[in-house]
Design a protein around this nucleic acid. Structure first.
Lengths: 109, 109
DNA sequence: ACCATTCATCGTCGATCGACGATAAACCTG
DNA sequence: CAGGTTTATCGTCGATCGACGATGAATGGT
């Protein structure tokens, strides 16, 4: 089932994912999309308590980072988590962080 | 050992960690610190190819995010990865991303 | 004691972010 | 077709980022 998670992630990819995650509002949006399965922008607007245009901007950032997919559905827009993107980001970030080992566990610094 | 990794990470913590990771230069710095066990700012400067003041700024960001520790060592500064911080960030980010499940695997969006 | 080295900080500059309101486009509904 | 809804985009504004050079403080070496 690990379809496209194996693509080597560059540092630019890592940074893009991390940057997209680096804002509380976007975390709230991701959680909202994941928890409720909510797909409608309007509901996200209510949950995060920001202006509709601001939420739209954050959704755009998340979409361009590949963490969220969205398709227009009539007058509304259906936004979902991009499972592949989330998995790739998780693997890449986890791999990065877990691959780091401190040179000295509290000894030298 | 893994003493304080269990502290509940807030969204603000998540965002701070992710933000600190959201820049290629800082990823390079982390990798440099991890790979070589390098502790001296000057070496990091050479590796990442940025001005010394810029690297110092990035190191400050990483330190304030809790991913790196640094102590002055004579005229130099000894910078190391903060194993606890890195582990906490990894656990928190991984937990967040792995806890998200798409409402529809490619079906609705 | 003097000088060289190393690093942190300051000031600056352009670029980007984050928020908002306003507006436009697309789409149902009556 | 007219009116209402939903969303994306534009323009704006202040704040922050990211880069640099210059400066200063602390230390080590001669």
């Amino acid at each position: 089932m690990t379809a496209t998670v194996s693509a080597a992630a560059t540092d630019a990819d890592l940074a893009r994912w991390a940057k997209a995650l680096g804002h509380p509002a976007r975390l709230a949006i991701l959680r909202t999309l994941g928890a409720q399965g909510t797909c409608v922008c309007g509901e996200v607007v209510e949950v995060v308590g920001l202006a509709q245009s601001t939420v739209s901007q954050h959704l755009k950032v998340l979409r361009e980072a590949g963490l969220v997919r969205g398709t227009p559905d009539g007058t509304r827009s259906c936004y979902c988590l991009d499972g592949g993107g989330v998995a790739a980001a998780s693997a890449a970030l986890g791999g990065l962080l877990d691959g780091l080992h401190a040179c000295c566990d509290g000894a030298c610094c």
